[in-house]
């Protein structure tokens, strides 16, 4: 009825396309929603895998992924965005939009090449290239954007890639994967606090640029 390999490839490619889509979004809410959609696909894959293989723990993980990665975390970030409306747009992307999309897709190809050259002989699965490509795309999202919420989404994309990679190794202990989910919640919530603090002084106080530069001198070198 279901061919899990085909579903894995489909979900993997959807994730890669969604990250490329995130790269061309200027509005942060679109990035958050896109991440949510990607996580729902991941949850659907886990549920399907659990159903086909008769593994109840995979189904529990699927529900956890849907509840936490697809619903709670995007909801938390969206609420944060609603509180600080000035945060809604990426003001200063590190690279231009067109070049980031092209580079993001090139990273996907690079991930495939790296995987084939280095890990394929050890993992013995042709599908491993998809999460590796996704992992690199997540890292690139962190590097290419200056908005902390987008950087946080980049980190979560990397986590999703590892989740997908972990599903290549059946029976990875449930307690570990559940622990990873809990840690992701903690990281997102703590990051949420820091993100709110991070840009507030720049918005709310009139600080001379030269003074600000002087304050940050210490972080050089």
């Amino acid at each position: 009825m279901f061919n899990l390999n085909e579903i894995f490839i489909l979900v993997g490619f959807i994730q890669i396309a969604l990250v490329a889509f995130m790269q061309w979004q200027i509005y942060i809410s679109s990035v958050i929603k896109t991440f949510s959609v990607g996580s729902y696909f991941l949850a659907a894959f886990l549920l399907a895998a659990g159903y086909v293989n008769g593994e109840p723990y995979l189904m529990v993980l699927g529900f956890l992924t849907a509840g936490i990665r697809a619903w709670f975390i995007p909801g938390f970030l969206s609420r944060m965005l609603r509180r600080d409306r000035w945060r809604a747009r990426e003001l200063k992307p590190v690279l231009g939009i067109a070049s980031t999309i092209i580079l993001s897709l090139l990273f996907a190809v690079f991930g495939y090449v790296i995987y084939t050259w280095t890990m394929y002989d050890y993992v013995h699965s042709a599908f491993g290239a998809i999460p590796v490509a996704l992992f690199l795309q997540g890292a690139f999202l962190i590097i290419s954007r200056s908005n902390p919420i987008t950087q946080l989404i980049g980190y979560l994309v990397m986590e999703n890639a590892l989740y997908l990679f972990g599903s290549l190794f059946p029976e990875l202990p449930f307690v570990v994967e559940a622990g990873v989910v809990l840690d992701v919640i903690g990281t997102v919530m703590i990051s949420g606090v820091i993100v709110r603090l991070k840009e507030e002084p720049a918005q709310n106080t009139e600080v001379e640029d030269s003074t600000r530069r002087e304050d940050f001198t210490e972080l050089r070198g």
Partner: peptide, 29 residues
């Protein structure tokens, strides 16, 4: 609670979390 400390905290979260995703990959291997 100053701007530089918050920036240092953000760097800590981003760099360390990214590094730890590599060790999660190691765990899977």
């Amino acid at each position: 609670n100053n701007e530089v400390a918050v920036e240092a905290t953000w760097r800590y979260i981003v760099i360390v979390s990214t590094g730890l995703t590599i060790s999660l990959l190691a765990t899977i291997f």
